[in-house]
Amino acid sequence: MIDFSILFEHGDMFLEGFWNTVQASLLALVGSFALGTIFAIFRISPIRPLNWIGTAYVEFVRNIPLILVVFLFFVGLPALGIVLSPFVAGTLGLTVYTAAFIAETIRAGIQAIPKGQMEAARSSGLTYNQAMRYIILPQAIKVVIPPMGNQFINLVKNSSVLGVIAGLDLMYFGDLISAETFVTFDVYIFVACFYLILTLPLSLLVGHLERRLAGSR
């Protein structure tokens, strides 16, 4: 049977890890959304050099394992004299990594809007930026919300990479508790449950939004 006493005896550690996972996820969520939007706009911009920057970013970051991106911040930056705490380095790595996927999601959403929408808007005298703001983005957001939700679920799960660099997250404390108590299976079951507390509601929310948005438009 599963030993629940571990949950109570090490409750403070579980909670600290959980809380740090929530923080890392939220920070990376906001950061990767902002960064991803910028790179998505770069990728579809009519200005060529911006295209190249956007494409380079997405292709490099997306095709490197997450843990290497995190290592870049954790061991790469100190080599340049910038030392970050494991938590900050891990969250930054997570942000940069997720932003590449968010950028692709947003770009795909914008490009899913028929070309005629931009043409109609521009031919009525709206500027490119106005057309984006009033016509393209409001429609793209509906297309983008469900896949974006999935990216955020991945983000929460991927935050467990912080455990590898002592980022004080749920995974890290899970490892610590199991090493202290020599109980492995039960501890990781609890860790999994804590992740589910975060990801299941997100998943249900995504499903709900998917159904609602399928109705409109």
Binding site: P114, G116, Q117, A120, A121, I135, P138, Q139, K142, R217
Partner: peptide
């Protein structure tokens, strides 16, 4: 040809 009204 395809109207291109703004659906939203």
């Amino acid at each position: 040809q395809h109207f291109n009204l703004y659906p939203h």
